[in-house]
Write a protein that binds this DNA or RNA. Sequence first.
DNA 1: ATCTAATCGAGACGGTACGTCGAGTCTTCCC
DNA 2: GGGAAGACTCGACGTACCGTCTCGATTAGAT
Lengths: 204, 204, 204, 204
Amino acid sequence: MSALLHPPQDAELAPQRGRGRPRDTDARTRILQASLEVLEEAGYPNVTCDAIAERAGASKSTIYRWWPHKEAVMLEALRESIAQELPFPDTGNLREDMRLQLRNFVKLLTGPRAGVFKGFIAAAQSDPQVAEAFRSIWVKPRRDYALSGMERYQHLLRDGVDLQLVMDAMYAPLYYRLLIGLAPLTPEYTDALTDLIWSGIGGS
Amino acid sequence: MSALLHPPQDAELAPQRGRGRPRDTDARTRILQASLEVLEEAGYPNVTCDAIAERAGASKSTIYRWWPHKEAVMLEALRESIAQELPFPDTGNLREDMRLQLRNFVKLLTGPRAGVFKGFIAAAQSDPQVAEAFRSIWVKPRRDYALSGMERYQHLLRDGVDLQLVMDAMYAPLYYRLLIGLAPLTPEYTDALTDLIWSGIGGS
Amino acid sequence: MSALLHPPQDAELAPQRGRGRPRDTDARTRILQASLEVLEEAGYPNVTCDAIAERAGASKSTIYRWWPHKEAVMLEALRESIAQELPFPDTGNLREDMRLQLRNFVKLLTGPRAGVFKGFIAAAQSDPQVAEAFRSIWVKPRRDYALSGMERYQHLLRDGVDLQLVMDAMYAPLYYRLLIGLAPLTPEYTDALTDLIWSGIGGS
Amino acid sequence: MSALLHPPQDAELAPQRGRGRPRDTDARTRILQASLEVLEEAGYPNVTCDAIAERAGASKSTIYRWWPHKEAVMLEALRESIAQELPFPDTGNLREDMRLQLRNFVKLLTGPRAGVFKGFIAAAQSDPQVAEAFRSIWVKPRRDYALSGMERYQHLLRDGVDLQLVMDAMYAPLYYRLLIGLAPLTPEYTDALTDLIWSGIGGS
DNA sequence: ATCTAATCGAGACGGTACGTCGAGTCTTCCC
DNA sequence: GGGAAGACTCGACGTACCGTCTCGATTAGAT
C-alpha cells in the first residue's frame, strides 16, 4: 500500500521519462483539491468517486488509473494539504514550546481541515491500509520530530519520564475532543492541559 | 434522534397495549446479537442490514420496523452489551481507584468489543446522531459516575485542578492508542499514565 | 441459457408460491416494452441497460435480478412481441399458401419490428446463446409449422423435392434483402420468388 | 463515407507527396492482418482497437490516423483478404458454372474467413456506413460479375426470368445458413439448391 | 369462535455508487 | 511529418447495499 501511495511523490522527483503523453499534473491537482472540498462539504461517506471526478472536471478512469481506490486519493490529498503545515516552535523554553505546539495543533483541528482528520481516522478503523498510511504519513513524522525537540530538554525533567507517554498525554486529549466532541477545543483548554502535564513531568 | 433510539427500551417497560401480535423479543435479541457479531468479524463498513438479517434469522423489515437505520441498531446493541460492564472500583484510595479504572477500561478495549468502539467512533465522525447517541449512552454516564467518585477526594488534590481535564487526560490516551494504533494498550501503559497524571494533580 | 430464458413463461403458469413480495409483472412488461422501443429508436448497439431502465421507470437491479444480461431481456421481448403474429394461411391451395406466407413475413420485416430482427441476427453472430435462442424461439417453431402445412401437399410436387430446401429457398431471400439491403422488400418481389420456386418444385 | 474508406487504396496508387516521413506500409499490413486474426479468434465484439494495436505492434493513433474507426479497418481488411478470391468459373455450361460458383462460395464461408463475413453483416445492421461499404466492396462487384456471366446464357432460360431474382435465390440460402445456423453448409446442399433453381428457371 | 390488528419471514422494488473496460482523442518523444 | 507510447474524457457494464414496499402466515386481544 505504502508503495501504491508514494509513486506520485517519486514521480515529482523524476517526472517524465517514457515516450507517451505525460501525466496531466493539473488534473492530479484538481482531483486532490476536489476530494478535499467534497470531504469538507459533504462528509466522508459522501465522498464519491463520481463526485470527485465531476468537481475536478476529470473522468473516473483517470482517478482509477493513478489511485487504487478513493481512500488512496484522499490520503495523498491529506499529505499534500498538510505537508507544510505546523512548523514546530523552538523558543528555547520547553514549556512554551509544548504550549505552542498544542495551540498550533488546535488551530488546525478547528479549521477547515478538521473534517479531513475526522474522516481519515474514521476510515482507518476499518481499513488497515488507511490506518498504516495515516500513521506513517502524518502521525509518526510529527511525533518523531516533536520527540527530538523534547529530548534536548530531558535533563530538566524528573528522572524516568517516558517521553512517548508524554506525547500521548499531550496530543491524545486533542484527538479525543475532536472525535468524541464532548466539549470544544480551545486554546485555554490546551494551556490547562500543558500545565497539568508540566506538573506531571516535574518540569521546573 | 434520542427519541427514535429509545422506544425499544420504553417498550420493554410498557411492553404491550394494542391488540395485534406482540413484538417478538427474541427476534430483537437475535438482531442485536447478530449486529455485534458481524461488526466484530467483518468490520464496520461490512455491517450490512442484509448480513444482520440473515445471521439473525430475521427479516429486514423487522429491523426497519423497530430501528430507523442500522446505526440505531448498533447503538442499542452497544448499550445492551456494555451496560453492566465496568463497575467502578472503590478501594478508598483515589490513586488505586484511578489505576483500576484504567486497567478495566483497557481490558474492555483489548477484548472482543474493541471493534464496536472503533466502529462507533468512526460512524460518529460523519453522523451527528450517532455521535450524540454515543456520547449520551456511553461517554457521559461513565464520566459523570467517575467524576462523582473523584469529587469525594478533591481535598487531596492540588488547588484548582479541573477534574474534567483530568478525566480527559486519563481516558483520552486509551482512545488514542485504540484509534491510532501506534502502540498496543497494556496494563503497564495505563499504570505509567496513572503515575504521570497523579504527579500532575499533586496527589499525595 | 434456454433455461434462463424460459422461467418467466413458467412463472406465468405458476406465478406465485413463496411468501415474499411477488414479482411486479407490470415492471416486467414495462421493461420488455422499453427494450423494444429503445431498439427501434436507437439501434441495437445503443440498447443500454440504463436506457431501458430509465424508459421503463424501473431500476437496473430489477433488470439484472430477472435477466442475466440485456440480450436475454431482448430475446424475451422478441418472443412476447412475436408470439401471436403470423398465423399461417390455409387456403387449400399450396401455391397460394406459400405466396401469402411470404407476403405476411415481408409485412413483418418492413414494419417497426424489422430492427428487432436485424438486431437479433446481428447479436447472434457473436453470441451463441442468442443464436440458439433465436433459432429455438423463432426460427424452428415457424419452420416446423410451415413444414407440416406443406407436407400435406407433397404428392403434388415433383418426386425427391426436399421441403427443408424449399423452406430455405423461400425465406432466405427475404432475410437476405433485410440484412444486406441491396434492394427493398416488396410484395411483388415475394410473388416473383414464389413463382420461381413453384416452377422449381414442379408444382402443378 | 466511401471516400473515407478508400484513401489507403488511393495512397498505394499515389504513395507519397508531402515532405514528411512516408506512410509505413508495413504497419498498415500488420494492422489489417491483426484485425482479421483477432476477429477470427475472439469474435466481432472482442475486436478492440487496443487488441489490434497490440497484436500489430502498432499504436492506436496510427490506426486512427488512417481509418476513421475500427469498422473501416476491418472492411479494408476484408477487401484485401477477399480481393483475389473466388474467380468465377467459365466452363461453357451454365448449370455447371452455377454449381461451381456456389461450391466455391461455400468453401469460403466454411473456412477461416467465415467469422469475417458474419462480423460484417452483424455490424452492418446498426451501421449504415458499414452496410454500404459491405455492399459496394463485396456484394455488388461479385453480383455484377456473376450477372454478366449469366447473361450470355439468357437465351437458354425460360422467358421472363429475372436474373437478379435468380442471384438472390442462389446466394441467399448460403448467407441464411451462415447467419442463422440451423444446418451446416455443405457441397451437397448447394448442388441440391442448384438443381432446384435450375428447374425453376427452366434450364435445359 | 370469530374478527381484527399488528407482527413475522421472505424477498422484490427504485436508487445510487462501485470499480472495470472500450472508444476515440490528444500530447509527448523519437526517428 | 510519421509512428509508438500512453494519458485523457466519456459512458456503459454488471454488482452490492440502502431503505421501502408488498406479500402469506402467525398470534394475540376484542367482539
